[in-house]
Nucleic acid binder design. Structure first.
Lengths: 101, 101
DNA sequence: CAAATATATCGATATTTACCGAAATTACGA
DNA sequence: TCGTAATTTCGGTAAATATCGATATATTTG
């Protein structure tokens, strides 16, 4: 995990929000608004797009940025891509930050 | 402390380095290369500039960015400005990150 | 297979950031 | 008070990031 990549990923309010929303999906994505949700897989791109109020392309970009630095994991199921937090990586990040700083 | 400001400040390798260097100044700024060092005040801009290999203006910019988001503290003594880590803020940051993510 | 849906990728433009050198500011010392 | 040193501020240019719409790629379904 590249600390600087993580910090770049997190220097955008929407990307911070996505990480927070995905901590408790049921809280931030009301069930009746969710097109698709599987606790094991996470939330699909469209639902995050709607919540963030961004275009599909930007949303896809953001999720990809968060994934590439390790904070999110993606699972493709049919036409959907579900994203969820990589809790292990987030814990590692906390330790890294505590150690480095 | 604005989390996003901190992340922006840290999305630059040199600024990350500065924070790490200032954790143990004696280790990263050999005594015989230090123009000025006071454990209570920190390290002066010129010494950080030399270590970072950047221009004076960029170094000043970077230090100011780190200071504005709360990670560093500055003390002006005569013609020198000494910078040191704000350990309290860094601890707060760790807690904030742990809580938010 | 054709149409529809979800997502990803590809330019394109606007904004932000990275850095620099020059100039301004402040402090010191002869 | 003049010259020198340390730092900051001020433009300026180059590179990176933000964000979009259009297009491309899968996948599902009629």
């Amino acid at each position: 995990m590249e600390l600087i990549m993580v910090f770049k990923a997190l220097s955008n309010q929407t990307r911070i929000n996505i990480l927070v929303w995905l901590k408790q999906p049921h809280l931030h994505f009301p069930a009746d608004e969710l097109k698709d949700y599987d606790p094991n897989l996470g939330v699909c791109v469209s639902d995050i797009k709607t919540k963030a109020g961004l275009s599909a392309s930007t949303t896809s970009d953001y999720l990809s940025i968060l994934q590439k630095c390790g904070l999110l994991e993606a699972t493709r199921v049919g036409q959907w891509t579900y994203f969820k937090r990589n809790e292990g990586a987030i814990e590692t990040l906390n330790k890294l930050i505590k150690k480095a700083f």
